[in-house]
């Protein structure tokens, strides 16, 4: 599992690892998964507050226009329940993908 411990002296290539320039193969796929998860996280976390701020600063629209979900304002439900479940789903999604990726590469080796 831990490749780093087996190689006592890593080569110069292994020392030059850049997250923003992933090498083809395992690392590129892993970084893609990380970016997808981070994007899903950021859009859900910051999207609704930004949307609310836009509504709030627009005099032609009011917060009263916000639709209701389960009898409470949609943004309230979104932050209170949906986002928590979304975070749990993201963790699950990420773990499943990473497990699948590492097992597929372990088999190949």
């Amino acid at each position: 599992m831990s490749q780093t411990n087996e190689q006592n002296s890593p080569s110069r290539e292994d020392l030059r690892i850049n997250f923003f320039r992933p090498r083809p193969g395992f690392m590129r796929k892993e970084v893609t998964i990380i970016w997808i998860t981070l994007a899903a996280w950021a859009i859900a976390t910051f999207g609704m507050p930004i949307h609310l701020a836009i509504i709030h600063n627009d005099p032609t629209r009011t917060l009263a226009e916000v639709p209701y979900v389960f009898g409470i304002p949609a943004y309230f439900w979104f932050s209170g329940q949906f986002l928590i479940l979304w975070f749990i789903f993201l963790c699950f999604f990420f773990n499943v993908l990473i497990d699948w990726l590492s097992s597929s590469y372990r088999r190949r080796r």
Partner: peptide, 24 residues
């Protein structure tokens, strides 16, 4: 506050947890 520390779990997992697990 709630989203800060619950969403933090996602960041912790994605950016740190999986990496240091593979590191051993």
């Amino acid at each position: 506050y709630i989203l800060g520390w619950t969403g933090g779990y996602v960041l912790l997992l994605v950016l740190m947890g999986s990496q240091i697990r593979r590191f051993g």
